[in-house]
């Protein structure tokens, strides 16, 4: 999973070098971090505890750590995470490892603000301990190295959040596409398909497939395609409507196109698109009436004294 993010984020040796330069993560910093390893090990417990105290003390974050077993598990991950800061390396393997953290947070829905806020607490505790343990020069230099790698870490985590989010959006778009080609039976053997939004190539095919299947299933004779919700009817959209019409006709049914606004009608004419193979109506209601009429049915107004 993280390897995939490494790819999506185009994180290679070049990107790594560029980012390390920008965040000033030097070899000297890495050496200093490695030398702080025993200090880090000594304080891991306290730091992880302080970190959780913060998260559990805040109602909005506490809910992410509801059961004790989970907390135990995440605490162990935190310990590892913290100690890895002091591995003294900053290579692709390290990045891959960090990517996993952002991905995990995205998965459980922990927003970046909590991650960033909690990291601040980390730094607070580390700073306290550093200045208690070392002379202030040394503590300051150490703090600077830690800050650099921590910011480097955060940049990766944020990238992962974004990549994971984009993936989620992509999945949602697919879902919406599937949802957005409903075929409704308005009367015996009369189907209605309201089209809404942008019709790209993918959707055009889905529309066609969904419709043809239903025409056969329902032995439909009329299909009303309503395009009132389609913002732009260009030659690409017109082409898929015409192809749909031809295919529907092969199955023994006819297409009635409705919801054509005056500007769209004029645009289609100026484009030179020939829509004469379809019945067309301005409004959906007229389309339904036309279908009923062509099917040999009439809508009778009771007031005006039709059949009881």
């Amino acid at each position: 999973m993280h390897a995939r993010y490494l790819r999506t984020l185009k994180f290679d040796e070049l990107e790594l070098a560029s980012r390390r330069t920008f965040f000033r993560v030097t070899d000297e910093d890495l050496a200093r971090l490695a030398s702080l390893r025993s200090f880090a090990e000594k304080h891991t417990e306290a730091i992880v505890e302080a970190f959780y105290e913060l998260l559990l003390g805040h109602p909005e974050t506490a809910k992410f750590f509801s059961d004790e077993l989970a907390v135990k598990h995440v605490k162990k991950l935190q310990r590892d995470y913290f100690l890895q800061l002091f591995d003294g390396r900053c290579d692709l393997a390290y990045v891959e490892n960090r990517l996993r953290v952002g991905a995990a947070h995205e998965r459980i829905g922990l927003a970046p603000k909590w991650y960033l806020g909690a990291y601040r607490r980390y730094l607070e505790v580390v700073r306290e301990q550093l200045f208690k343990t070392f002379p202030s020069d040394e503590a300051r230099a150490s703090m600077e190295s830690i800050t650099r790698i921590v910011f480097f870490d955060m940049s990766i985590a944020i990238d992962t959040y974004i990549a994971a989010n984009l993936e989620t959006i992509g999945r949602h778009q697919l879902a919406i596409r599937e949802l957005s080609t409903p075929v409704i039976r308005v009367h015996e053997r009369i189907l209605l398909m309201p089209l809404i939004g942008t019709i790209d190539s993918l959707r055009a095919n889905q529309i066609m497939d969904a419709l043809l299947l239903r025409v056969v299933e329902e032995q439909a004779r009329f299909v009303i395609v309503d395009i009132a919700g389609v913002p732009v009817v260009d030659t690409k959209v017109a082409d898929s409507l015409l192809k749909t019409t031809a295919a529907v006709r092969m199955l023994g049914a006819q297409v009635i196109l409705t919801g054509i606004s005056a500007p769209i009608a004029r645009t289609l004419v100026q484009l030179g698109v020939d829509v004469s193979s379809m019945h067309t109506c301005a409004r959906l209601q007229e389309g339904i009436e036309l279908a009923l009429q062509l099917a040999g049915k009439v809508i009778v107004d009771r007031e005006k004294g039709g059949a009881p």
């Binding site: 732009v232 260009d234 030659t235 500007p263 004029r266 645009t267 100026q270 484009l271």
Partner: peptide
């Protein structure tokens, strides 16, 4: 107006494609 708007939007759609 709505006619001119539909015209430019559609032409832009065509040329972009």
């Amino acid at each position: 107006d709505p006619f001119a708007t539909a015209a430019i939007t559609t032409a832009v759609s065509e040329l972009t494609r």
